[in-house]
Design a protein around this nucleic acid. Structure first.
Length: 820
DNA sequence: AGCACGCCGACT
DNA sequence: GTCGGCGTGCTC
């Protein structure tokens, strides 16, 4: 095989053919990583997709520069999933590759500019050039982006080019960013002193070096005693060093005197905490046990099972039993959770059961740690279970027997940007087919699509209707805010009933959760005189005010701006903070209950690595009385002292212009209500709304999922929405608004000639400009029974025909399959 | 997506 | 006259 087709991390819809150097003939396989040169100078790592002997006719091939692995790091079954994804989600293999591997396994070159020491200037050069040269001379070498940053230039290309011509600098491409094993230094007793006599002599010889003596004693203590130390037991150097002040010189002296020896060893980054005693799997309640048996029956029929269990019904225990069984059969298990539900609570619980068999794959982990999880699984080391977020469907499983998708209804399983815009639940089902794994979808509030699959006998349904350990479903009180407003009884966002219940809970030393879904209601500034609102320079959105840094930030492109004292339009000093976010609620509730301690959980307070866990554990331990939060508070948290949950504004969710708004509202309200109540004490939920008779609220109140589903499914059928129809969104982007509009109209016309009334739009999406690109959107709704691949091919043809047109060949068209 | 090339307007 | 911004094309 003399040629290799290689997947490269570029969004181009093809593979690239490189020549295999002679010495590698017959030694390569699909899935191995190679380094190749791409374009004029770039070095990239890519994945061998296939090997063949077809010499390309149209171009000269470049050779593969080097081979990074002796054996494939992407398995054949992974490559199959990649291919399926690229096809189903209409993206390129390169985009899948980018998403699939942790960046530590993807190498890319970086241009380094080296200063030439022998250089002597013959003529004077411009000031800027001289500055950059001085900068390089001081640093020896630097990168383009560093120089740009230093010089404040948008591009330093011209200057560098000049310097190259003058021989003042040389450039060089350097591969960077590769993962390296972590090493730590261990100490053990030197062979010379591993008997009592010589050890005694050693002690004697240290009589005038008290510090070294102290350290040696500490070392012996750390090994667990002299006899242990004699066997060569090792102690972490940094741990020993931390036991005495200024001990590092003493340690190094002892090494020099050949009393201690040090060795560097590769250590696992993930085995930081010691594994506690592995817990036995708990016995299940009768309800749980029969649910487990039902689930197994479904698995026997080779059907995915939808486990519909009310909140706090103990689904996790069932999962643990299933995982345990899979491991006993020698299989692997994958437990998928949405990002925000992957808390220490659940991690600790699983760790207690599965110990070092458990691997965790999470975006808050460093990239090095993710590489280690990847390698652990690839080399079949310790992991048998992976608890992870959406991207863990990309891990190199070899014998996946069980997949659990918990909180199956969660939208965050769908990746929105960048491509691949995949839904982890749907990819997991495909993954499961490949391995013939058992698949379990768990939730208290199934998505309409999944429940429909139950009705159609594509999934088996298992229900858990009772809460764990005698917990009762909460009492739900609906408060009419319109009426309260009319009677002028609303105190800002709080109804008298809600305030009454809060103060009652507080005086009973119980905790309160206040839920505010702030979607579209983030705090922003507005001029009270002229109505001017600070907007993003590059996007069609108002800037969001962030109190902690006192800045305005664009949530779409990250643009930030200082807060000005005066209005930029009319110059009057009347800029006011507007909006109804969690921060506002936090402040106001603090004024009403000055003695309560309040925590806030939202995008801002949980961005840092520890922020999220601090808030949760603080609330758990009763440091806070009230927790104010966005949808984050609804996910998989079990608190023991929460007696009251307040939903501040249900209307906001219900009035969203989206066909899934009711579904999302029901799920959100049901989930957040599930946080109320403790063992043997019924919790209370207060829902504030201006429309207490709203059918969705009625179903939440009666906890009647089936009725809710019935209503929704009829609506979906009537208006041709999923699950009866499939949806594809095409977003057309261009810097010039006219070009965007024309291209969108042309494309929509083409599509209509093929699909007729299945085409909607083009329409301007709610946010019509992002990063200086104007947007238009076309929606394609087509019957579920139509062949998706056929439909997608026809759509591709229309897109290609549009892009072939000279006038809009620079238009970007983004494909979102099954959008949410 | 990145990156280089080259065209063209802005300032010395 | 040069500098540097941005539009255009190419990547095995």
């Amino acid at each position: 095989m003399r040629y290799a087709d290689i997947v490269l991390p570029v969004p181009l819809p093809k593979l690239f053919t490189y020549e295999v150097p002679n010495e590698y003939h017959g030694t390569l396989a699909a899935g191995q990583r190679v380094v190749v040169s791409f374009g004029k100078k770039k070095l990239l790592s890519g994945i061998i997709f296939s090997l063949h002997n077809n010499k390309p006719e149209a171009y000269e091939t470049k050779p593969i520069i080097s081979i990074l692995d002796d054996k494939p790091i992407v398995t054949l079954s992974q490559l199959k999933v990649w291919e399926w994804m690229a096809d189903y989600y209409q993206c390129t293999l390169g985009e899948v590759y980018k998403a699939a591997l942790p960046s530590g396994l993807k190498l890319e070159s970086e241009t380094r500019i080296f200063y030439n020491d022998e250089f002597e200037a013959e003529t004077e050069m411009p000031e800027k050039t001289q500055q950059i040269l001085d900068f390089l001379a001081a640093k020896k070498y630097s990168t383009i982006s560093e120089i740009n940053q230093f010089s404040g230039l948008k591009s330093c290309h011209h200057i560098i080019k000049q310097l190259i011509e003058l021989d003042a600098v040389v450039v060089n491409e350097q591969l960077k960013g590769s993962w390296r094993p972590k090493t730590e230094v261990f100490l053990s007793l030197h062979n010379n002193v591993r008997n009592e006599n010589s050890l005694r002599d050693a002690f004697d010889s240290l009589s005038r070096a008290p510090k070294q003596l102290e350290v040696l004693m500490l070392f012996l203590q750390s090994t667990g005693g002299v006899s242990e130390a004699m066997t060569g037991k090792e102690v972490l150097k940094k741990e020993l060093a931390s036991k005495a002040v200024n001990s590092s010189t003493a340690i190094n002296e002892l090494i020099k005197k050949e009393m201690l020896v040090q060795v560097k060893r590769n250590v696992d980054r993930l085995l930081t905490s010691k594994i506690e005693n592995v817990q036995k799997v708990k016995t299940l309640s009768p309800e749980q046990d029969s649910a487990l048996q039902e689930t197994l029956k479904g698995f026997d029929e080779n059907l995915p099972v939808l486990l519909h269990g009310v909140t706090s019904s103990g689904k996790t225990e069932i999962y643990i039993h299933l995982i345990d069984q899979a491991i006993k059969k020698g299989q692997q298990a994958l437990y998928l959770l949405p990002e925000i539900a992957l808390t220490t609570q659940i991690t600790n619980r699983l760790k207690a059961h599965f110990g070092e068999k458990l691997g965790i794959y999470h975006s808050k982990f460093s990239d090095d740690q993710r590489v280690e999880v990847y390698n652990n699984l690839l080399n079949n080391k310790s992991y048998r279970v992976i608890l992870g977020v959406r991207s863990s469907v990309f891990l190199p499983f070899s014998n996946l027997g069980l997949i659990i998708i918990d909180e199956e209804h969660e939208n965050s399983f769908k990746q929105f940007d960048p491509a691949p815009r995949y839904h982890a639940r749907d990819v997991a089902l495909v993954l499961g087919q490949g391995f013939k794994s058992s698949v379990l979808l768990g939730t208290a509030t199934p998505s309409i699509e999944s429940y429909y699959n139950v009705q159609n006998n594509k999934y088996r349904l298992v229900e858990l209707t009772t809460r764990f350990e005698g917990m009762m479903m909460p009492e739900i009180i609906v408060v009419n805010t319109r009426e309260a407003q009319r009677k002028k009884m609303m105190q800002s966002h709080f109804s008298p009933q809600l305030l009454e219940h809060i103060s009652e809970a507080l005086s009973n030393k119980q905790q309160v959760i206040l839920f505010q879904n702030r979607r579209g209601f983030a705090p922003f500034m507005e001029c009270m005189s002229c109505g001017w609102i600070p907007k993003c320079k590059h996007c069609d959105v108002s800037l969001t005010y962030h109190k902690h840094i006192h800045q305005l930030i664009c949530h779409y492109c990250g643009y930030s701006s200082n807060v000005h004292a005066t209005c930029q339009a009319c110059e009057s000093p009347t800029l006011n903070l507007k909006g109804f976010g969690t921060q506002k609620i936090e402040e106001e509730i603090g004024q009403i209950f000055p003695d309560a301690s309040i925590a806030r959980m939202d995008y801002d307070t949980t961005r840092s690595r520890k922020g999220y866990e601090n808030i949760i554990s603080g609330f758990e331990q009763g440091e806070y009385n009230i927790l104010v939060g966005t949808q984050m508070v609804t996910k998989g948290l079990d608190f023991d002292r929460v007696s009251l949950v307040g939903i501040l504004n249900a209307d906001q969710m219900l009035n969203h212009p989206d066909f899934r708004a009711f579904e999302k509202s029901f799920q959100m309200m049901a989930q957040v209500s599930g946080r109320a109540g403790r063992k043997h004490k019924r919790g209370t939920v207060i829902i504030q709304t201006s429309d207490p008779e709203h059918p969705v609220i009625a179903k939440v109140r009666s906890n009647n999922y089936a009725a809710f589903y019935q209503e929704q499914i009829e609506e979906r059928e009537q208006f041709n929405y999923p699950p009866f129809y499939r949806i594809i969104h095409l977003t057309i982007k261009h810097k010039n608004q006219n070009v965007t509009n024309q291209a969108a109209n042309y494309l929509a016309g083409l599509l209509r000639s093929v699909f007729g009334s299945r085409i909607l739009g083009p329409q301007v999406p709610p946010v019509n400009r992002i990063q200086d690109h104007h947007l238009q959107r076309i929606m394609i709704k087509y019957e579920r029974k139509a062949s998706p691949s056929q439909v997608k091919k026809l759509i591709r043809d229309c897109i290609n025909q549009t892009l072939a047109n000279e006038r809009w060949k620079y238009v970007q068209i983004v494909n979102d399959v099954d959008p949410l």
